[in-house]
Nucleic acid binder design. Structure first.
Lengths: 179, 179
DNA sequence: GTGGATAGTCAACACCTGTTGGCCTACAAT
DNA sequence: ATTGTAGGCCAACAGGTGTTGACTATCCAC
């Protein structure tokens, strides 16, 4: 079969995102990704050069935080995070591999540091405690993702979005703006 | 050199715990563990049979939750968790590999489900919501470990034990006994 | 129709993995 | 001193990994 270059590249990237998200960096082999894309492993190298570059492309990700009213920032963040996680595999890719891969961990740090911190400063006007506040928020949000989507604690899997928002919002709100 | 059988086995196990804790299951190779223990890789197989069995031995772990007064359960849990994490590599081993390994994830579920849930029932007398409460506690505690020890968010690394306890206790306390 | 570019395949490479069996070698009991 | 046992090492296996280069097949422009 013969496809256009950009089409094939997109197919490979989609397969890579799925595999990386499901298995992490090491277990997601080039051969498996190529098989998913119904293509020869050599094509993956042709289009992306190296496994690391393919990973970098697959882990492209942006939190895209919306504007949030100060008193609803906690609830808004939790809800936004849950939906982003389910809509975009990028976060899952990063978490699954960030645990054993320093480069992915670094990206995680810049994503949360770089995107949540400005929100905190905007909400509190206090740049000094903003880094810690942002990290606390990240700790709860990533703990949520870990227990619900990765480790799959049954009660977390069974909970509805609204239940989780109700339980976690006060926590996140306090980390953002509380004493 | 010649050591006693039990001695060598202990040396191997110690090296394995370190390697698994630092690198996770896949990247911690038998050869690397053997090199750390200054021994031939074949010895590892001789004493533990297989890599999976070696991992099972290295991931042996118990939370050993203490008795906690109801109104200090949150603070007590956070402090106990932090100290356990730093004293025993078992938790780190489990988290690093549970992210990409179903067997380790299962152990994680039974450890937190099986040990935190009774505490919740004891504190609240409400068995119905106990599983969700325990999972929420786990989400925050594991999120703490993830951001501080694995992803190494700088503000979380820099924070003192007391600061972290102060920030996280209200959260954990509310998950345990709050509305 | 013919040429050249471009999508795709194949087979092999060098390396690393867990795992195995045979071979030493030091010790303790006889 | 001899022997049996148990700790330890070596070399190799079979399979899987990322990566490479030569080769084929298809399309489009002329």
């Amino acid at each position: 079969m013969r496809r256009s270059s950009v089409e094939t590249k997109a197919v490979i990237l989609a397969a890579a995102r799925e595999r990386f998200a499901a298995d992490g960096y090491d277990k997601a082999t080039i051969r498996a990704i190529a098989a998913d894309a119904r293509i020869d492993p050599a094509m993956v190298m042709r289009y992306f050069g190296t496994k690391e570059k393919l990973f970098a492309a697959a882990a492209e990700f942006d939190l895209e935080l919306p504007d949030l009213a100060p008193e609803q920032a906690g609830a808004g963040l939790v809800r936004h995070f849950l939906r982003t996680w389910e809509a975009d595999e990028g976060l899952q890719v990063l978490l699954r591999t960030g645990v054993t891969n320093e480069a992915a961990a670094e990206r995680m740090r810049t994503i949360f540091g770089g995107q949540v911190m400005p929100l905190v400063i905007d909400l509190t006007g206090d740049p000094e405690r903003a880094p810690l506040r942002a990290s606390l928020v990240a700790s709860q949000l990533l703990g949520l993702a870990l227990s619900r989507y990765i480790l799959k604690f049954p009660p977390m899997v069974a909970a509805t979005e609204e239940e989780l928002v109700a339980w976690l919002s006060p926590t996140v709100q306090r980390y953002l703006t509380g004493p």
